[in-house]
Amino acid sequence: MQPQHENLLGLRSAMKLMHAAIGLSVGTSLLGSGLHAQEEPDHRLHQYHFGEIAIPPASGDEPVAENLSIERAVAYLEGGARAWVNNRGCVSCHTTGWYGILRPQLAGSLGQPDAAFRAFLEERLQDRLAKDLGELQGGVDPAEVVHLAASLASWDAYVDQRLSPETEQALQLMFRLQRDDGAWHSPDTWPPFESDAFQVATVAAMSVGLAPGWLEQSASPELQGQVASLREYLQRVPPPHDYARVALLWAEQHLPGVIGADRKQDFVRMILDRQRPDGGWSIRSFAQPEEWGRGNRAERLRAEADFGDPASDGHQTGLAVVVLSSAGVPSTDPAIERGVEWLRRNQRESGRWWTKSLNTETWHFITYTGTLYPVMALAVTSSPDSPSSEER
């Protein structure tokens, strides 16, 4: 039985908060009742749009907020996830995939995630399980299954504190899609998430490490061998660029041993060396244009006005703080403090942190993780008595 989208992620109850906090345009009624009821959004007007959710496009021209507001950031994140689930119905790398992985980990500071999102993940899993394996081997499907497994595993770890049958099923499906070289197929067209197989493999490593007790207690000898193949891939294959090195360092937190101690410190130093004078980091300084996927964005990226000196952005600054923290760099380290201060100073009025897309001039979907990562960064670096919502 499909859940009614009126209940999905508490859509109605969130609208009043979201309208006040993020300036969303609120319509007069919701659309049809099915989870996958479709409304074709006008992307010229909205970054995310479904029913009463109408989130304006992200723009580098948006004014900086006077005060940091976690409420506005969360309103954007929850609204974007709701709209994507209802309108697209998939676990996308750039929105619901990372929302699914990180939102459970923020339960301590933001409260429990809505159980309806877990229901969506389980329904999407059943949809993927019903497909022939051959249908899932190309395009974005392997990456979706990997992010789905990681999302369910994260929920198990941080919300239910137990391994669920659904996560076991998702991990089994994930490894059924594993290639002989230990990685998964990925499109090489949409950096940073759907740009290479290495990125997907780091998320697969996260899913294995997040699933409570799965590797030690539930994985069959065959699956244990496939995990070993994943480890070997991440140890053997050179990361295609420095952004991939950041992802590998993050994966190490969840699946220890994929990098040695010396490489780990090299990666930490690399991230620290990339910090900009203003305290932030720029995603564009973590790969040459030709290194993203098959280089099909290179001409566009090299033509950008600030190509030689790209500005700091929310995505990479939040990611750098989160990954450095996971690698053991204390929150009192000057680099972390400067990164956090950059985040506090550079939130936009909508609640987002601006990150310019590597792909198009239209979608800028990277502003989603460009907001999710900063929220995570502020959470992991906060002292116990730090405010967890509106800051003044």
Rank of each mutant, 00 (worst) to 15 (best):
M15T: 14
P289R: 01
E232D: 15
W342R: 03
H254T: 04
P41R: 05
E304L: 13
E304Y: 06
Q226L: 02
I259V: 14
D273M: 12
N87M: 00
R12P: 06
H147N: 11
T95R: 06
E6F: 10
T189D: 13
H49W: 10
L255S: 00
R44I: 04
Y158N: 07
Q288I: 08
F307P: 07
E122K: 12
R345E: 15
R245P: 10
R162C: 11
Y233S: 14
Q226N: 09
G100Q: 10
P113E: 13
P3R: 00
S282F: 02
Q126L: 12
A157M: 12
A205R: 04
A149E: 03
S92G: 13
R284T: 01
P238K: 14
V340D: 09
A219L: 02
A335V: 06
L68S: 09
T381Y: 01
L255V: 00
D196N: 15
P212S: 13
L163Y: 00
T381D: 09
P239T: 02
D306G: 01
P374H: 06
H5C: 03
I22F: 08
L358I: 04
G279Y: 03
V237W: 03
V26F: 04
M1Y: 07
G10F: 00
T167S: 15
L8N: 10
G134M: 11
R294F: 14
D278A: 07
V145Y: 02
E361G: 12
V159K: 02
R300A: 15
